[in-house]
Amino acid sequence: MRLRAIAHSRTGDKGDTANVSLIAFDPAEYSRLEAQVTAERVRDHFAGIVTGGVVRYALPQLGTLNFVMRGALGGGVTRSLALDAHGKGLSALLLDLEIPDAEG
């Protein structure tokens, strides 16, 4: 299943760094997100887009994982030639990440 089935996302950007939060619709799904969506998986998922490191911050009280991705915006929003390479585009791409469904 894709993450969008159990979570939504919010994003922000500053310079060449993107900040992407993954928020469980249902707090009961948070532990599943925490187990399946690691910094390494996110880095692999964004291969070719993110050129720097990815750090994950867990916020269990909010049912949220926050990912800080360096080198994610083609040099920065104002320098990039890509159309909407920031914010909404990155959150939509994260929500396409596949994880096992509840039975798998």
Rank of each mutant, 00 (worst) to 15 (best):
residue 86 H to G: 14
residue 61 Q to S: 14
residue 26 D to C: 08
residue 16 D to M: 14
residue 78 T to R: 10
residue 72 A to L: 00
residue 69 M to G: 06
residue 16 D to W: 15
residue 51 T to K: 14
residue 51 T to Y: 10
residue 55 V to Q: 11
residue 8 H to M: 06
residue 10 R to D: 05
residue 77 V to L: 14
residue 83 L to E: 05
residue 18 A to N: 04
residue 77 V to A: 15
residue 65 L to E: 11
residue 11 T to H: 03
residue 88 K to F: 10
residue 7 A to M: 02
residue 49 I to A: 03
residue 53 G to D: 12
residue 88 K to T: 13
residue 82 A to S: 13
residue 12 G to S: 13
residue 78 T to Q: 11
residue 48 G to H: 06
residue 16 D to S: 10
residue 13 D to W: 00
residue 69 M to L: 13
residue 19 N to T: 07
residue 66 N to E: 09
residue 56 R to F: 01
residue 27 P to Y: 06
residue 30 Y to E: 01
residue 82 A to T: 12
residue 16 D to G: 08
residue 77 V to T: 13
residue 37 V to W: 08
residue 53 G to W: 04
residue 64 T to K: 07
residue 36 Q to L: 13
residue 23 I to F: 00
residue 81 L to T: 13
residue 76 G to C: 03
residue 30 Y to C: 00
residue 70 R to C: 12
residue 61 Q to C: 13
residue 10 R to V: 01
residue 52 G to E: 00
residue 25 F to W: 06
residue 66 N to D: 07
residue 72 A to K: 04
residue 16 D to L: 12
residue 71 G to V: 03
residue 6 I to M: 06
residue 47 A to R: 05
residue 43 R to P: 03
residue 21 S to L: 07
residue 69 M to V: 11
residue 68 V to F: 07
residue 79 R to G: 12
residue 22 L to A: 10
residue 67 F to C: 08
residue 72 A to Q: 02
residue 56 R to D: 02
residue 29 E to W: 15
residue 60 P to K: 04
residue 25 F to E: 04
residue 15 G to M: 10
residue 28 A to W: 07
residue 78 T to L: 12
residue 34 E to P: 12
residue 60 P to I: 01
residue 33 L to Q: 14
residue 41 R to A: 10
residue 87 G to R: 03
residue 55 V to D: 06
residue 40 E to P: 08
residue 62 L to Q: 09
residue 43 R to N: 05
residue 29 E to H: 15
residue 71 G to I: 06
residue 27 P to A: 07
residue 89 G to Y: 04
residue 22 L to P: 09
residue 71 G to A: 02
residue 30 Y to H: 02
residue 86 H to A: 15
residue 64 T to D: 04
residue 14 K to L: 13
residue 51 T to M: 10
residue 44 D to W: 06
residue 53 G to S: 12
residue 70 R to L: 14
residue 75 G to K: 04
residue 52 G to F: 13
residue 63 G to I: 01
residue 70 R to Y: 14
residue 58 A to E: 14
residue 17 T to V: 15
residue 42 V to Q: 02
residue 56 R to A: 05
residue 24 A to Y: 07
residue 81 L to V: 12
residue 86 H to I: 05
residue 58 A to S: 15
residue 47 A to V: 07
residue 31 S to T: 14
residue 88 K to W: 08
residue 18 A to W: 02
residue 53 G to K: 08
residue 14 K to M: 14
residue 81 L to C: 09
residue 36 Q to K: 09
residue 17 T to D: 14
residue 36 Q to C: 15
